[in-house]
Computed example of a mutant assay.
Amino acid sequence: MFRIALVAAIVVLSGVAGAQSSEPQASPQRKLVDGFEGRDFAPEGGLYYRENFEQSAGTYEFQSLVKRTGTGGLKLSVVPHCPNLNDGCSERAEIWEKTELRVPYDQGVWYGFAVNFDDPVPNGDHRYLIAQWKREIIPGAEGDFSPFLALRMELGKLFATVETNYLPPVSTGRENVAARCGPGEVPVWLRPDVNQMRILAATDGNWKAEDGSLFNSCTNAVTITDHGNPLPDPKSGWIDFVVYTKPGPDGTGHIELYANGKPIVTVKGHIGHADEGLGKNQYFKFGPYRAADTTQWTLYYDDFRRSPHCADVLTGGVCPF
């Protein structure tokens, strides 16, 4: 009896010690927040700058001249770095979630962050991303999987794309398809050679049908509910994005996209990838990411937050659930 009581006491004390530990809580239930107020990433934000060749094109700076709230903001810049403009090299200054804090791929989570485009805003026909959500890839796995959700810019216009595994289209080869897909269909760029397809999910108010010429087929793999609010103009100042992400390659995916407190689109259906060699978690990264270019590109970020609860992230808007 004494041995049983002693073991029980040790278990209780161990549990108390664990509860008081200062180690990061590796759980999607943990709320993450970073207002970039100090000289480094806040411990409660769970963010870091990843070091590799493409990231060496970038710099990050905690500064106080350009901010949305508080006393500071994060400046991220990329400069020409690739040896050749046409060799597939990219230039990045992306901020990542720490690996131990990533959210399981089959769970939903809310993200928020604000971004401000420095002048001049790039307006070329080029590949620019400002934020992306991906699935982990197991080291050594074959394939290069695009983000299942990305906020992109081309010709100076913002747009959002959703990616999933290739599914046969409901129609192909239609001119100006963004204006011509039928009821229940959405514009898609088919990429069967890599078992992927990219869906045009949302655009800004300056977008024209011809801007979406790449999305020249239609799919019913997802449903998109347009809430009547376009994405903001990248020249309009601070844009506060709020995003709910729950991948579901089997058709159970769900995305909510807000900007400046207004609902933009709801996307449901086939979202993300289910190929061999992919990991169990989703992850988020933000910052300027582009194909090799010849100019400097700078973005400012502020007010990062992540939570399983919408109310922790969406301010000035109404949570959908």
Rank of each mutant, 00 (worst) to 15 (best):
K75R: 15
K75G: 04
R191P: 00
Q55S: 03
E54T: 14
L74D: 01
Y48M: 13
T69G: 01
H81L: 02
P192M: 00
T315P: 00
P249C: 11
Y111Q: 01
D293A: 13
L167C: 10
N116Q: 02
G156D: 05
D106G: 05
P139Y: 05
W96F: 14
Y49F: 14
R152Q: 15
G182P: 11
D34F: 10
A179L: 08
K157S: 07
R127L: 04
Y283M: 08
I264H: 13
A274D: 12
P80C: 08
V12T: 07
V7H: 07
A141S: 15
E44N: 07
C89G: 07
Q25F: 15
R305N: 14
E44H: 09
T266F: 02
A131Y: 00
E97L: 15
D240S: 15
W110Y: 10
P308I: 10
G46E: 02
I271M: 07
P249Y: 12
S217G: 14
Y166C: 00
K280Q: 15
A9C: 05
T59S: 15
F304W: 04
F145T: 01
T161P: 09
S64L: 05
D34H: 13
K75P: 09
A292N: 06
A259C: 08
G173D: 05
S77Q: 11
E23M: 14
E94K: 04
F41K: 09
L158H: 11
D40H: 11
D119C: 00
G46I: 02
D204A: 00
S21W: 14
Y283R: 08
R198G: 04
R152Y: 05
F41G: 06
T99D: 14
K134F: 03
F304Y: 09
T225K: 12
V121K: 07
T225C: 02
T315L: 03
Y283H: 14
K268C: 04
Q63W: 02
G15S: 12
L129S: 14
N116H: 06
A17R: 10
G15H: 05
I255Q: 04
T298N: 03
N195R: 04
L65R: 10
H273K: 12
F148Q: 15
C89H: 04
T164V: 05
T315M: 04
R102P: 03
V194F: 11
A202I: 13
S90G: 03
T252D: 06
V267D: 07
H270R: 08
W207I: 06
F286D: 01
I264C: 13
P80W: 02
L200P: 05
A17T: 07
F304G: 00
D34Y: 13
V115R: 00
F41S: 05
E154G: 09
A201D: 06
G18I: 15
G112W: 08
G108F: 10
V33A: 12
V177F: 11
A274Q: 06
I271A: 06
G15T: 08
